[in-house]
Computed example of a mutant assay.
Amino acid sequence: MTILQSLANRDRVFDFLIPDPSPVDVRHGPILYLEDVSVSFDGFKAINDLNLTIDDGELRCIIGPNGAGKTTMMDIITGKTRPDHGQVWFGSRHNLLTMNEPEIATLGIGRKFQKPTVFEALSVFENLELAMSADKRVMPTLVARLSGEARDRIDEVLEMIGLQTERDRAAGILSHGQKQWLEIGMLLMQRPRLLLVDEPVAGMTEQEMERTGELLTSLAGKQSVVVVEHDMGFVRSIARKVTVLHQGSVLAEGSMDQVSSDPRVVEVYLGEES
């Protein structure tokens, strides 16, 4: 029995537990569009006239040296940081610079930070249940009972993240890799259209890295996925298109073979890896 069930009136079924379809319109362009975006902190230009587009259903890898602006870029997209100038659009209708963080998340942009943040005392199932896009006011949460459709959604996500056999285990005893997958699953419960993933394989075993690559590539097409990562072997294994950031702007873009053979990329970034 789940946390919500234990407090539920068994005759109640709350349809608000099932999120509405995303209102994002991508019929006339990319799902994410950044134009001439700049932001400075104490005189340091963290983002410098950045131009970037992400297509609907695309898997994009973002690489670059420390200080290239990768985290700041994600902060701008999610509303944590406001740029000094530029435009940031989600689909053709939603100006993200006019929205706050909760509004952007509700619109369909999910972000996974490097360190997994799961509820360790709760089971895998309960973590997914609580993450479901829903009315978060106290009383509805206390009395809500999962509908059949909501249970099906949790089962679907459990299968996607490969944790079906761990559904009743406490999240705190999962491996590092499994916690990362669970957090991705918690984001997927909210049906994001765009998923921002920061260094997903840091600290993982080779087997966990391989499984993570399979998970992220399986999501492409269903969601747009932007992966920021330093492990070049992992990037090569999943990359379809790679964007290299340097000093807050795009240095190079293309396939992994194209960017890894670009002398500018070798000089400022890949040379550090050898």
Rank of each mutant, 00 (worst) to 15 (best):
W181S: 04
T71I: 14
R169Y: 06
V138S: 08
P65K: 10
D15Y: 14
Q164G: 06
G69T: 05
A252R: 01
A252Y: 00
V242K: 01
M232F: 03
P263F: 14
C61G: 04
S123G: 08
L130F: 11
V24E: 08
Q87H: 15
P140H: 07
S249P: 04
S237V: 06
L4A: 11
L174Q: 02
D56H: 14
R240L: 08
I238W: 01
V265L: 05
R191G: 03
G213R: 02
G67D: 04
T205C: 08
E58F: 13
P83A: 13
D168E: 11
G233A: 14
S22C: 13
I31S: 02
R211S: 13
G86Y: 06
D36F: 07
G271C: 08
K241V: 04
A8K: 06
D262G: 05
I104L: 12
D42K: 15
R93P: 06
N66K: 07
L188C: 02
L50P: 00
L146H: 02
M186I: 06
G248V: 03
I161F: 03
D168V: 05
M209P: 01
V250L: 10
E126S: 07
A220S: 12
G233T: 10
S22I: 07
P21A: 15
D231H: 11
E206P: 03
S147L: 07
T53F: 08
P192V: 07
R236C: 06
G43C: 11
P21F: 14
G110A: 15
T71M: 08
E267H: 13
G248H: 03
L4I: 10
S255M: 10
F16A: 15
V13C: 10
S224H: 05
D75Y: 04
M232P: 01
K45R: 15
K136G: 08
A105Q: 13
I154C: 05
L163Q: 00
G79A: 09
Q87S: 15
D11I: 09
S255C: 13
R240C: 10
I62H: 00
H28S: 15
G221K: 13
D36Y: 10
N51G: 15
R111D: 04
Y269L: 02
E206M: 11
A131G: 15
E206D: 11
T212A: 13
N127W: 00
Q178L: 05
R60S: 05
Q223C: 11
D257A: 15
Q258Y: 14
D20T: 12
M232V: 06
E101P: 08
R12W: 10
Q87C: 11
L50D: 00
I109Q: 02
M139P: 04
P102A: 14
S6M: 10
V266P: 01
P140E: 07
G185W: 00
D257R: 15
L187V: 14
I77S: 02
Q207M: 12
V266W: 03
R236F: 06
A105G: 12
I161H: 00
